[in-house]
Design a protein around this nucleic acid. Sequence first.
DNA 1: CGACTGGTTGACGAGGGTCAAGGACCGTGG
DNA 2: CCACGGTCCTTGACCCTCGTCAACCAGTCG
Lengths: 226, 226
Amino acid sequence: MLTPLPVMDLPQTQMPLAPSVPPKPREETEFHTSSVPLNFARNSEIFAEGEAAGYVYKIVSGVVRVSKLLPDGRRQISAFHLPGDMFGFEVDDVHHVSAEAIGPVKVIAYKWQNLLSATSSSSFVHELLNRTMIGLRQTQDHLLLLGRKNALERLAAFLIEMVRRTGSEQSLHLAMPRHDIADYLGLTLETVSRMFAELKDAGIIKLESARQVSVLDMPKLEAMAT
Amino acid sequence: MLTPLPVMDLPQTQMPLAPSVPPKPREETEFHTSSVPLNFARNSEIFAEGEAAGYVYKIVSGVVRVSKLLPDGRRQISAFHLPGDMFGFEVDDVHHVSAEAIGPVKVIAYKWQNLLSATSSSSFVHELLNRTMIGLRQTQDHLLLLGRKNALERLAAFLIEMVRRTGSEQSLHLAMPRHDIADYLGLTLETVSRMFAELKDAGIIKLESARQVSVLDMPKLEAMAT
DNA sequence: CGACTGGTTGACGAGGGTCAAGGACCGTGG
DNA sequence: CCACGGTCCTTGACCCTCGTCAACCAGTCG
């Protein structure tokens, strides 16, 4: 199940605010260990597309967005990661997506090489294979959403996904702004906002605030997600 | 590198034409072996969403589409698989996508359990992990296409992908009809047809026939894919 | 209190979907 | 050899969903 091995409890240095340079695992801190706890501030970059990959991250707290950018700035968020999730796997040694902290985030970074080395149990490779296959499945589901669902269906599916993953039936808290939801769903933030209003007007959800949503009629919401 | 082990050379029975019932690996044929060669006719189903999973398939010849359906018939193709590709992995024992032969297809089916059992080398698990991570990366790239690219960019990206994967610089042969391309790109077949015409009118491609495309200006095509 | 970030709402237009007609290209059979 | 049917493809006309642009509102932090 992958639990951190020898963990150095680093003095948790205060992180600079975005968009300044994010902290990376440094030679000195990872000298004797394969797992390093790290903190990231709101909107700071955990790793960037094109950067050398070498670590796998497991979230302790906070939410992370993983995304790809086009040269002109259009962005697609491929996943949100919640506490317990892992991200940062790469086939080769280059990241082909970037990862950013949506709010303050605590992660544990594992050195990729150590995980696949002979010393590590093969059960870990199975674990990793499992997580990767699950990620692939979720991404395929998301393809269907982006390729074939309309705006209302997309938002409904998003809310259902969040309710399921956070385990919060009512009074769901959304960690991310409308802009991130839009870039996850392949929409604009205005359209996301309009669809929230539509679900609200239909009596399916209640907006306590922009980030705090109560699902009033789960069956109807599920019906809308098609 | 995963090559078939003891292969029984089955009498290659003539396949029924679609949409009749496709052949599945049967008990009698897999009794002593973990790999079975199979043939599928045009448009026949290799496996369906919701069906029990138990085999991994490697394509010998032909092209396979992997897709998901919404209840009302909207379809998203998540990938096309060419000879040498493998597909059919599942985390649990149920297929969450379906796979169909686009034309006549020859595959080798491997029993999933045998591949992960103690007898199989751990290098195979690494191989599988690699293929899955590559699939995940390609799917993430496709998310960006579906979520953020316009119709012309999508078709350009598709043609570039096909040129790269088939290794055919000029005179690319497309195995699939417009409808499948559309369902892969999240468009309608009419829009796909119009974008083909647009690329043709711009002098970037030449349409020998609907399925036979010559790329006249690869740099310009790459520029259009954004 | 003011500045900033984030969210909502409206007016308008464009990109791509829908509907429809017709053309091209097969393989089959008379 | 040609006619026929089926599948696939193209093109046009129209329309709808969602993106764009803009103004305004709400909450928060100094």
